[in-house]
Nucleic acid binder design. Sequence first.
DNA 1: AGGGGCAAGTGACATCGTAT
DNA 2: ATACGATGTCACTTGCCCCT
Length: 469
Amino acid sequence: MRRGLVRAETRVSARRAQELATAWPALVRPMLAIPGEVPTEPGWGYEFKWDGVRAIAYVADGELRLMSRNDLDVTRCYPELIDLAELLAGYRVVLDGEIVSLDRAGRPDFGLLQSRMHVQRPGPALLHRVPVAYFAFDLLHHDGDSLLAEPYRARRDRLAGLPLEGRSRSVAVPRWWPGWPGDGEAVLAAAREHGLEGVMAKRLDSRYQPGRRSRSWIKTALTHTMDVVVGGWKPGEGHRSGTIGSLLVGAYGGEGELRYLGHVGTGFTRRVLADLYTRLSGLETDADPFAGTVPREHARDVRWVRPLLVAEISYRGVTRDGRLRAASWRGLRPDKAPAEARTDLPPCSPRPRSAGWLLGAEPERPSRGLVHPDTGEAGGGQPIRQRGRIHRHHCVGQVQQPEHRRGDTVRAGQHAAGPQHPVRLGEQPVLPRRRGHVVQHGEAQHRGERGVGQRHGGAVALGHPHGAG
DNA sequence: AGGGGCAAGTGACATCGTAT
DNA sequence: ATACGATGTCACTTGCCCCT
């Protein structure tokens, strides 16, 4: 078999785009989602939102080409994904999917993937240390047929017909739920419980709109909030010049030290920036208020301030070195004292302790479909419902994991003792409500201690959020 | 060591088209 | 004329590689 074309990562010229359009059915840019609440009305299908890098995969005649969101050819960066071409020998397809790197528990970890993203010729050591997988979630072309005008449900059905699952450690077709009312909340609850990034909802009757941000796809990211103390700020650039670019924030640790947690540079309105500029100008000092050292690249051009302002921020997780990921400003908390802003953060992004639930460890399990909770009957990918509830259904397709990463498999939704729905900012009237689902800091902190999972037959199963199953 | 580039993302805001 | 929704642009984050 010929190996996939290997080219340096390059931006595609118009001429190259024409070549690609000739060699493959078409050059398709990924369809994008708008952020919003999980839709609950009928007519939506649901998937988990994967924390990785989007890529369109072109497979033809045993060759593979992977194109990034910005028309970069990233085939050479991920040589293990040539498995796609080998699995699909004899097919001519275009897939939409996500390149992910899995942590020890088998969950996508964007931090891990970052060590692969810009390496054009990864060596054996890096390939072994940080393997990647391709999660295919859409089929755009199939043996000469363009499926772009086909409804999402039909594209998914044809994707399920491809010989992709359970045959390679590098390829998976994640589960999806052709929705019933309420499924969205159930999938979101499962995502929250397992520390995933969020949920994608897609209209079952929607066509694929290349390169478009469409209301037919809605992404709901899970975020967390916490109170922080502002310890410094950096000047802005461009249309933010003359005002604040970002704030350096921290919170108090167990020893009473102010721990640096990172920058917040988004979420402000002009009015808020002007107000903060005035407030912070009155607090300027020469002394760095943070315990320990703020990294040099973070401290460049910083104006330190006395740590008296308390604010609430939202964030998507915590990086390995204890920094807030994707932090966003929500508002000042004049009702709180600086000492009330405490870290007590988990050492990493809040995630459950249980391992390996995401990817099945038994690739030859007889039925990969849904299993009826009472009869054990396979449901062929459709949600099994009884008395209007989802009982249990499997989460992702089967992927062989590297030996060193095999782990437990869990059944979700059976042990969650805490709140089943996130605490929303609506309960804090001083602050505006934002998009996305919010997990309060305390909830995120404790979730990892709630044993949410247990072994179950090689694939995860979702329990209904209201306790069935 | 420092800066640029790239991936993911967030959010605000300007602009354009359509509806009232 | 005004209001509203959709869309695109811009500035910002982390973390990595690569080049100077």
